[in-house]
Design a protein around this nucleic acid. Structure first.
Lengths: 143, 143
DNA sequence: TTTAAACCATAGTATTTTTGTAGGTTTACA
DNA sequence: TGTAAACCTACAAAAATACTATGGTTTAAA
């Protein structure tokens, strides 16, 4: 049960953009150097963020990426979901889950569904603005 | 970000034991048939549960496994941790995590740590007795 | 003493996911 | 028109997952 590096990198990317001027296009090359992530890998991570409309791209020379909205208008959850798709802890909870014959008699589905709620409630309670505000410890995010 | 089948099976195993008489040894062969999990795979899952002291084994004929305590005395969290080890969402939060040079300036570690807390708080709030009580829907586990 | 069970080891394997790399095409600014 | 950037497609190495197979040793109840 681990989040992927793409998930982690995506958050770092978005924080990097959030810490720039709102109208400034930042090229991936620059982020690549700051964050020690290869340009090509960055591309793969930025693409779904762009497709989801979380960032705006400018092509050609002097192009790059910038946020589409204010940092306070993003949740960590929607960033992670742009990369992961649905943020569910087990396959049975996916939207197009194959209908399991045990479903009606499953003793654990409710538990997993509750975990799903707890996770999504948490990640949607943290905004990009929260992340942007200087490095913080764990305590700052405890409920 | 998915829990493994071993995690899911481990919960189902424990529920199965919880639904038997407390002093009854249940052989893996029986659970294997009930849950459609191969005997050999079951062994692999039961071993860490046994080593962690969550179940008691009886060897020889008429042997099998039974719970070591009452269902209400287990949390889902400790069952999952017996299988997974630490239940952390990213490597940086593991106990023996390589010390990251960015740690002091990381904008996202606090977020992940908060998620870690949310997850562990939830899984430790559900007991095996809760799971045992008939199949339940998601709503029964929402906070 | 037969039998059924845990326990132990170890290996193999197929599949999927993760974590990237490589190379080219299109766009738009200066 | 040169240049720097996004954009697109494909490939590939490594790791994790989810098993199966094999074959035994030890234990204890009937």
């Amino acid at each position: 049960m681990k989040f992927s590096t793409k998930d982690r990198y995506a958050l770092r990317l978005m924080v990097e953009l959030a810490n720039r001027a709102p109208d400034e296009f930042v090229p991936l090359k620059e982020i690549s150097e700051h964050q020690d992530i290869s340009l090509k890998y960055l591309e793969q991570i930025m693409t779904p963020l762009s497709r989801a409309g979380l960032v705006v791209s400018g092509r050609g020379s002097q192009g790059g990426y910038r946020l589409a909205r204010l940092p306070v208008q993003y949740t960590a959850g929607e960033i992670l979901r742009a990369i992961e798709g649905e943020l569910v802890p087990i396959p049975c909870l996916e939207n197009n889950a194959a209908d399991c014959p045990r479903r009606g008699e499953c003793y654990t589905l409710g538990f997993w569904s509750g975990l799903n709620d707890a996770i999504n409630r948490y990640v949607d309670s943290v905004t990009l603005e929260d992340l942007r505000q200087q490095p913080l410890g764990a305590d700052d995010y405890s409920i």
